[in-house]
Design a binder for these strands. Structure first.
Length: 685
DNA sequence: ACCGGCTTAAACAAAG
DNA sequence: TCTTTGTTTAAGCCGG
């Protein structure tokens, strides 16, 4: 049936003016539940610890020396992590003035403690742009590393010493004894770590995630166990004692931390004001750094008219809801109640840990994804991995100018440039979703499409992120659909395949299926750029590149505005909150984690087309056909060969599995539609 | 304030 | 009859 005529009309109906009518407001979906089973993996294995283990464990038994070695290595690792952690805390101090330094990308710890400022998880997600997250993480890490160098060295030395000492001691003692001793120690360590981790997660769940009580019980619950890998979590709490304190101290501290953590957690959970939790433990303040930070923050918070820890007339300090009439009073309160004392310090630390942990998890996930992709033949490292197969146009080059009708999208094209590493960051400063922030509900930010950040490159760079984090991608449905279609060799997909692509590529689309699927269909029908081609066995959708380009005026590309908008939009607090929320909500179960974020990791997976690259303006060949009737097979862009049997084969026919290709296993089970479909959390509001 | 783009919701219809 | 696929319409939010 000819759709053409109908489609033409569509546009006519512009914006609605009548308000009310309703129905929409409901805004359901707050969902969250996310934890799609698919993604959730069994995180158990963490490469890192294993690597370091010097293969000792590979053969069932290891000699005591080996064991020793192994243990030492582990200890080192733990220490290393601890250091990193410390670094972060060091880093935190200056961050409190978040609002002031809009440009810097940092994640102020203090800000992180304002779970209350919540927007719904969804909103947060929207606000948050993955790239931003990454940028944040990267920056933070860089910073911490920097600041920490000295500290780090010291610590290392000490550690080394300790280890040496132990080693020596070990030599003198019977191996077994030593082994046992170490083992015991290590076990203890692990236990503590696990405990801590649990508390942390707990906290996280209750405090940060409480926005979504419903989901708390679900997916997240799994976190602790799954995510926690002994070696990783390590929390160097104990490490803290290291700097200069003997084991005793560290142990003690440990206890303290735990307690405080617990306390914090509880306070979060229970609304009640805060009564000083049980922190009876005197915190051996071993963290000058942290302390300072706290103090700093309180001191210069005054500058801004508002304070990240102050909102709605009350103190947002974790667990504290004290009412303060004005900022002044609040400041006072802050200085008295949350002064530099054990409790505050501990709470701060906890918060930092939460953040850190999340960061690490993110990094881990990314790494894992990469490995998976590598395994599946999608070489992330390569600029334009898949897609170019059949079609001529050897990817890369072509894109250059969308020459004539031929192939506007060069398929593969991702601009190699960005791909590499950190570059991404610059692109999106935190703050992306200005829009979303305000709007309470369904707001959405769709930056990229407009700003033209080529979806392809964006996607390519953050593809892993989107795949795993339950974050809404900043692209419009139209651009995503197009992307999906262009990614395939024949540039055509059945509706179902498009769905699959969405679920495969974005964790976010693994839930609320009804909603986005409807949107996808709606977009396919609505935009002229999507052409439906009928086939014996059904129909496939193709992209009429020309139309696509047409529909968007040549926006500014470099988009200073973009940046501007993004920046202005959010306060760090919000950003951070969203970050956490996103992470928390994200299904990724995380894994444990050894390494830190590697910037370039995600880069370049997708071949993607240049999306906005070709200036919409000129390219198209002015070949007569002005507005191709909808149905007509696109003669420009590349000829589409309707495939004989569409749906059927579904994923199997793609040559080089594009990234998310066929393999369901890669990410979450694409096919899980069913699965996710029934996810409880899904539609509940 | 208006307009256009985008999203979400929902009603319907045709096919399978 | 139910589900999927498509098409439309309506309405809200946003940014220009």
């Amino acid at each position: 049936m000819m759709v053409e005529s109908a489609s033409e009309t569509i546009r006519s109906a512009p914006a609605g003016q009548n308000g009310g009518v309703g129905s929409l407001s409901g805004q359901a979906d707050g969902g969250s539940g996310s934890g799609t089973a698919g993604t959730a993996p069994a995180a158990g294995r963490d490469g890192s610890s294993r690597d370091t283990a010097s293969g000792a464990d590979s053969n069932g038994e290891m000699s005591s020396t080996e064991l020793l070695q192994f243990q030492q290595q582990q200890a080192l690792q733990v220490a290393r992590q601890f250091l990193l952690q410390q670094a972060s805390s060091l880093n935190s101090p200056g961050n409190n003035d978040s609002k002031q330094s809009a440009s810097a990308v940092q994640v102020p710890v203090s800000v992180a403690m304002m779970p209350q400022q919540i927007l719904t998880p969804q909103q947060m997600q929207q606000i948050l742009s993955p790239p931003q997250l990454q940028a944040l993480l990267q920056q933070q890490q860089a910073l911490m590393l920097q600041q920490l160098q000295e500290y780090y060295k010291k610590q290392q030395e000490q550690l080394h010493l300790q280890i040496l000492t132990q080693q020596q001691a070990g030599k003198q003692q019977p191996k077994e004894a030593l082994g046992n001793k170490q083992l015991a120690f290590q076990q203890q360590l692990l236990q503590m770590q696990q405990l801590q981790q649990q508390h942390l997660l707990n906290l996280q769940r209750q405090g940060l995630v409480n926005l979504q009580p419903s989901q708390a019980s679900g997916p997240l619950q799994a976190l602790p166990q799954a995510a926690v890998c002994p070696t990783d979590l390590p929390q160097l709490w104990k490490g803290e004692g290291a700097p200069g304190q003997p084991a005793e101290d560290s142990v003690r501290q440990e206890g303290l931390d735990l307690a405080s953590t617990a306390a914090t957690a509880t306070s979060f959970a229970s609304p009640p004001k805060v009564s000083p939790p049980l922190s009876h433990h005197p915190l051996p303040n071993g963290q000058p750094t942290v302390l300072t930070s706290r103090r700093d923050s309180s001191s210069h918070e005054e500058t801004p008219s508002s304070h990240p820890l102050y909102g709605h007339g009350e103190c947002k300090w974790p667990g504290c809801e004290t009412l303060c009439e004005d900022l002044g009073q609040f400041i006072k309160h802050l200085n008295t109640e949350h002064a530099l004392d054990d409790r505050s310090t501990a709470q701060c630390r906890v918060q930092m840990q939460v953040v850190q942990q999340l960061e690490i998890q993110l990094a881990k996930e990314s790494e894992r994804l990469q490995a998976m992709m590598a395994h599946l033949h999608m070489r992330p490292s390569e600029p334009k991995p898949f897609s170019q197969p059949l079609n001529p146009v050897p990817g890369s080059s072509s894109f250059s100018k969308v020459t004539v009708s031929a192939d506007p999208f060069p398929d593969g094209l991702v601009h190699p440039p960005t791909s590499a590493a950190a570059p991404v960051t610059p692109l999106r400063p935190p703050g992306l979703g200005s829009a979303s922030l305000h709007s309470g509900g369904p707001a959405r930010r769709r930056s990229s499409d407009k700003f033209c950040s080529p979806i392809s490159s964006e996607l390519a760079q953050n593809h892993e992120f989107y795949k795993n984090a339950d974050v809404r991608p900043p692209f419009t449905y139209a651009s995503l659909i197009r992307q999906a279609i262009l990614e395939t060799p024949d540039r055509q997909l059945t509706l179902n395949e498009i769905y699959n692509w969405f679920t495969r590529m974005f964790a976010y689309f693994r839930r609320n299926t009804a909603t986005w699927k409807n949107a996808v269909r709606h977009n396919l029908s609505l935009h002229k750029c999507f052409v439906r081609v009928e086939n014996v066995k059904g129909a496939v959708w193709t992209v009429d590149e020309r139309e696509y380009q047409k529909r968007r005026p040549p926006k500014m590309t470099g988009s200073p505005t973009l940046v501007k908008n993004m920046i202005s939009g959010l306060s760090y607090g919000a950003l951070n909150a969203s970050y956490q929320a996103a992470l928390a909500e994200s299904s990724f179960p995380l894994l444990s984690s050894p390494g830190m974020l590697n910037p370039g990791s995600a880069s370049s997976l997708l071949p993607l087309s240049q999306d906005d690259m070709g200036a919409p303006g000129e390219p198209l060949p002015s070949n007569g056909s002005s507005s191709p009737p909808r149905l007509s097979p696109p003669q420009y862009s590349h000829q589409v060969q309707v495939k004989e049997e569409p749906a059927e084969a579904e994923e199997d026919r793609r040559p080089g599995p594009p990234l998310g290709a066929p393999n369901p296993s890669t990410v979450g089970p694409p096919e899980d539609r069913d699965l996710e479909e029934d996810l409880p959390g899904e539609d509940m509001s």
